[in-house]
């Protein structure tokens, strides 16, 4: 069947959404910079930033989904996530990127680059994990 039930993506990716950084500063989602994530994580007692490199991008279970395989952190742990093609990730030094930037822009009015194998995304882990 060609029908697909659209899964609602989180509202905070919509252009204009107000994001609070760890120091209390408010920014619009489209104005976030790599430093904002790094500095917020530095303040956080629980979370730390990890670099997650895109290793593979495969088709997901539904036509609108992709399975992205990341290599996470210094240990290069392999982690797979299945997301909708329009789901944006924040790439270090580049900003918001998704597998289908046109769709992300259409749905969220959020300017996006194309997420590619080799891109290094901002991700989080818990501090204290060894």
């Amino acid at each position: 069947s060609a029908s697909s039930s659209p899964v609602a993506l989180p509202p905070f990716f919509m252009r204009g959404s107000i994001i609070q950084l760890a120091d209390g500063e408010l920014k619009r989602v489209e104005d976030l910079k790599t430093e904002d994530f790094i500095q917020s994580a530095e303040i956080s007692s629980e979370l730390k930033i990890d670099s997650s490199t895109v290793e593979r991008i495969d088709n997901g279970q539904s036509p609108n989904a992709v399975v992205i395989q990341f290599s996470v952190g210094e240990l290069k742990a392999q982690v797979c996530v299945e997301v909708l093609v329009e789901y944006p990730f924040f790439v270090f030094g580049q900003g918001w990127s998704s597998c289908c930037p046109d769709r992300t822009t259409q749905l969220f009015e959020l300017s996006c680059a194309k997420l590619c194998v080799g891109d290094v995304c901002v991700s989080l882990t818990l501090r204290g994990m060894r």
């Binding site: 905070f12 994001i19 976030l32 917020s40 742990a77 982690v79 991700s123 882990t125």
Partner: peptide
């Protein structure tokens, strides 16, 4: 009286995927 609409504020970490490496103890 018209109450002002409150604008939702989202925490920064909600935008970042939580990718926990598999642990081996």
């Amino acid at each position: 009286n018209v109450e002002p609409r409150s604008v939702p504020v989202f925490p920064w970490h909600s935008l970042v995927p939580f990718l926990a490496p598999t642990q081996s103890d």
